[in-house]
């Protein structure tokens, strides 16, 4: 079988050209970087790595009835704004305000559950409005031992574990663009889930890699995550 290419799919990450030399894997209706070189990327992930999860499903809901809607659909919701919870299926729910939630898909089901939430939502009389987070935001995963130090070069919020524990959410500015940083590890691997303006991701990707350089940071694929 010929290698997968991003342009074979109608849904594309703005970063797909930067991933031209990577091996891609299928992810729902699109593709995602499986790995770059031939070697195991696990040590890279433990040290310092950047993954593009832009093609993985995510969606937002906002409104007075959003919490009720999501509870009915089986989600556990964070108690307070700027907190996040990982669900039993590996997807995540971050609460961004009193009435706003951000749902992040899981690699385990290739984002299917969250993608279904987006597809299945209907405009109705209840105050629960869908927010097109998959299109408005790119999704990057910063992993490894140095995530707080990397972000300290770009961002004025204290993201060390003692100030920004697992489950914390920061809506802030990094490298002069707005970002949402969520501290949700993958198992034992320290991870910041970073959502930034989709149109700025080419800029932000380079800014992050530059900040990661002193820690030996590299882009990586999802194979080593699974």
């Amino acid at each position: 079988m010929a290698a997968l290419q991003a342009q074979q799919f109608i849904e594309r990450s703005p970063l797909y050209r930067q991933q031209a030399d990577a091996t891609l894997g299928r992810l729902g209706d699109s593709v995602i970087v499986a790995h770059y070189g031939e070697h195991d990327e696990s040590p890279q992930l433990q040290r310092c790595a950047l993954l593009d999860l832009t093609n993985l499903a995510r969606v937002g809901f906002r409104g007075a009835a959003a919490a009720e809607y999501l509870l009915e659909r089986g989600y556990q919701l964070p108690e307070a704004p700027n907190r996040a919870l990982t669900q039993s299926d590996g997807s995540h729910v971050a609460r961004l305000s009193q009435t706003e939630y951000l749902l992040l898909g899981s690699l385990r089901d290739a984002g299917a559950r969250i993608a279904a939430e987006e597809a299945g939502w209907q405009f109705s009389e209840t105050a629960n409005y869908l927010l097109p987070r998959q299109d408005s935001h790119a999704w990057l995963l910063l992993t490894g031992a140095h995530i707080a130090e990397v972000m300290a070069k770009l961002c004025g919020v204290d993201l060390r574990p003692e100030a920004f524990p697992v489950g914390a959410v920061a809506q802030t500015s990094a490298a002069r663009i707005n970002v949402i940083v969520v501290n949700l590890p993958e198992g034992e691997l320290p991870c910041f889930q970073i959502l930034c303006d989709r149109a700025s991701v080419a800029y932000f990707w380079d800014a992050l890699l530059d900040a990661m350089a002193e820690f030996g940071g590299q882009p990586a694929g999802i194979d080593a995550l699974l």
Partner: peptide
């Protein structure tokens, strides 16, 4: 009130 103490540049 929503995001806690932050640099005023935010």
């Amino acid at each position: 009130p929503l995001n806690g103490p932050r640099n005023i540049s935010e």
